[in-house]
C-alpha cells in the first residue's frame, strides 16, 4: 500500500509543478496557455535523451528547464500580439507542433516507438520503496522551492505588475510599464517549471512516447487549478489533490462497490470530474481556495 501511495504522491507532485507554472501564467498574469503540455514534453525528451548520453541528472534537469524556457521564447513574442482566446488557440497549436516534431524526428526521438529504458533516479538505491521515497523527497523539495519562489514573486513589484496586467493591460501601459517583457518572463518561468516536471516524469515512468503528451494533460492541469482556485498557490495544491482523488480514488470505489463494472466506472469517473467542474463554475467560480477578498 505504501508504495502505491508514494507512486500517487510522485505523480501528484509532478502535476503540482505543472499547476504552479500554469497558475503563474493564467492565475497571476491572465495568459491563457492551452499548450502547457508542450513544455512538459520538451522537458521530458530533453532529460531522457541526455540521460541516455550519460549526463548526470543535475545537468540534464537544468538543460530540460533551459530548453523548455527557450521553447517559450517565441511563444512569448506571439503573446504580445494576441490576447486571450487567440493566444489560447496558438498555444494549443504549439503543443501539437511539439508533439508532431517529436513524432517525426525519428533520428533523435525514435518517433512513435518512444524512448525506452530511461534510467530511474537514484538507481543506486534498492528498487521499490527506498528509491521511490528518495524521488518523492526530491520532488517535494523542488515543489517547496517553486512555491517559495512563487510567494516571493507575488509579494514583489514584479508580482504586482503581472497582476495588474491581468486586471487591465491598457492601464498598465498607460502607467508607462511594458507588459511585453513581463509576459515573456512569466511564460518562460512557467515553461521552466513544466520542463522540470517533464524531466521527473520521464525518469519516473521510464518510457516516453509522443502519445503521452496530448492536450488532455494540459486540460487536466486546467481542471486542477480551476477547482482549486485560480491565482492561489494553495489552489494549485488543493486542485491537484482533488484531481488525483477523483482519478485514483475511483479505483477504490470499485473495491467497495463491485457491481459497477470497470467500463461503467470509467464513464462515472469522467462524469464525476465533469460534474465537479460544472458545479465549481456555478457555485464556487473562485475555486476551493478562491480569493474572496478580490472581485
Amino acid at each position: 500500500m505504501e508504495a502505491y501511495l508514494v507512486a500517487i504522491a510522485i505523480v501528484a507532485a509532478i502535476y503540482v509543478l505543472l499547476a504552479l507554472g500554469l497558475n503563474l501564467q493564467y492565475g497571476l498574469t491572465g495568459i491563457i496557455n492551452f499548450g502547457h503540455v508542450g513544455f512538459f514534453c520538451v522537458g521530458a525528451y530533453t532529460a531522457a535523451l541526455l540521460a541516455e548520453k550519460g549526463w548526470p541528472p543535475l545537468l540534464s534537469f537544468s538543460a530540460a528547464a533551459a530548453l523548455a524556457m527557450l521553447a517559450a521564447w517565441p511563444m512569448g513574442l506571439i503573446s504580445l500580439k494576441l490576447r486571450e482566446d487567440y493566444f489560447a488557440i496558438v498555444s494549443l497549436g504549439f503543443s501539437e507542433v511539439v508533439r508532431l516534431v517529436v513524432t517525426s524526428e525519428k533520428w533523435l526521438t525514435s518517433g512513435v516507438q518512444g524512448i525506452t529504458g530511461i534510467p530511474k533516479l537514484f538507481g543506486g538505491l534498492a528498487t521499490g520503496l527506498p528509491n521511490s521515497l528518495a524521488v518523492l523527497a526530491v520532488l517535494v523539495a523542488v515543489n517547496l522551492l517553486a512555491i517559495a519562489a512563487m510567494r516571493r514573486i507575488v509579494t514583489s513589484p514584479f508580482g504586482r505588475t503581472i497582476e495588474a496586467i491581468r486586471d487591465n493591460e491598457e492601464a498598465v501601459k498607460a502607467l508607462g510599464k511594458d507588459p511585453a517583457a513581463f509576459k515573456i518572463q512569466v511564460l518562460m518561468l512557467g515553461a521552466a517549471l513544466a520542463g522540470v516536471a517533464g524531466a521527473f516524469y520521464a525518469h519516473y515512468i521510464g518510457y516516453i512516447s509522443p502519445d503521452q503528451f496530448i492536450p488532455l494533460v494540459t486540460f487536466q492541469i486546467w481542471m486542477a487549478i480551476i477547482m482549486g482556485g485560480v491565482g492561489r498557490i494553495s489552489g494549485a495544491l488543493a486542485g491537484t489533490f482533488i484531481l488525483m482523488l477523483f482519478l485514483e480514488g475511483s479505483r477504490f470505489l470499485r473495491d467497495i462497490m463491485p457491481f459497477i463494472s470497470e467500463v461503467e466506472m470509467a464513464s462515472v469517473r469522467l462524469g464525476v470530474v465533469g460534474l465537479a467542474l460544472v458545479l465549481f463554475t456555478l457555485y464556487r467560480p473562485t475555486g476551493l481556495m478562491g480569493d474572496f477578498t478580490r472581485k
Partner: peptide
C-alpha cells in the same frame, strides 16, 4: 498507477 495499485 493502476499497475502499482494492483501490485501493492
Amino acid at each position: 498507477l493502476a499497475a502499482k495499485k494492483l501490485i501493492e
